[in-house]
Computed example of a mutant assay.
Amino acid sequence: MYNLLMIYSGWEGARDSMPLSRVFEYTAEDIVERYRSDAGIRFDDLIRLPCLFMAEGTGPEIARVGRIFEYRVSGNEVVIEYGFDQTVPSLLNSTIFAHKRDFDMPHDFEFSRGHWAVKDVDLFKVLLGVTRSHRQRPRVFNIAEHESIDASLISIMMPFDPVLLPVFETLRAMATGMRLRLRRADDMWDNEAVIQDVVSLIDRSRVVIADCTGRNSNVFYEVGIAHTLGREVILIAQSANDVPFDLRHLRIVEYQNNQEGLVALRDILENRIADLLGR
Rank of each mutant, 00 (worst) to 15 (best):
Y2E: 07
L4S: 03
L5A: 10
L5G: 13
L5C: 10
M6T: 13
I7T: 08
S9M: 09
W11D: 02
G13R: 10
G13P: 06
L20W: 10
R22F: 04
E25N: 14
E25W: 12
S37Y: 07
D38A: 15
G40Q: 11
G40I: 01
L46P: 07
L49S: 07
L49M: 09
P50V: 00
C51W: 02
F53R: 07
G57D: 08
P60H: 03
R64P: 07
G66H: 05
E70M: 10
V78G: 15
V79D: 14
I80A: 11
I80K: 14
I80L: 14
E81W: 08
E81D: 09
E81H: 07
Y82E: 02
Y82C: 03
D85F: 00
D85Q: 06
P89S: 07
P89W: 11
S90M: 04
N93W: 02
N93S: 01
N93M: 02
A98F: 03
F103H: 07
F103T: 00
M105Q: 11
P106W: 01
P106L: 00
F109K: 04
F109N: 12
S112V: 00
H115T: 01
L127Y: 00
L128Y: 02
G129P: 06
G129Q: 06
V130I: 05
T131P: 06
H134A: 04
R135I: 00
Q136M: 05
R139I: 05
R139G: 10
V140R: 15
F141C: 06
N142R: 08
I149P: 12
A151K: 14
A151Y: 05
A151G: 07
A151W: 01
S152V: 02
L153T: 02
L153W: 05
S155Y: 01
M158T: 06
P159R: 08
D161W: 08
P162E: 10
V163L: 11
L165S: 12
L165C: 03
F168L: 09
L171S: 05
R172K: 13
R172F: 02
R172D: 13
R172L: 02
A173E: 15
M174C: 13
M174K: 13
A175M: 10
A175D: 09
A175C: 14
G177I: 05
L180G: 11
R181V: 04
L182C: 04
L182H: 04
R184W: 09
A185V: 09
A185I: 00
A185E: 08
W189L: 14
D190E: 12
N191T: 01
E192Y: 08
I195M: 14
Q196F: 06
Q196D: 07
D197K: 10
L201I: 02
I202E: 10
I202H: 13
R204S: 14
R206T: 01
V208Q: 15
A210S: 07
T213S: 15
N216Y: 04
N216L: 05
S217F: 08
F220L: 04
F220N: 14
E222S: 05
E222R: 05
V223R: 10
V223A: 10
V223N: 12
G224W: 08
G224R: 15
T228I: 04
L229M: 14
R231K: 15
V233D: 15
R248V: 03
R251G: 13
R251I: 02
R251W: 10
I252H: 12
I252G: 15
Y255A: 02
N258I: 00
Q259F: 09
E260G: 13
L262N: 09
D267I: 00
N271W: 04
A274F: 00
A274D: 11
G278M: 06
R279H: 06
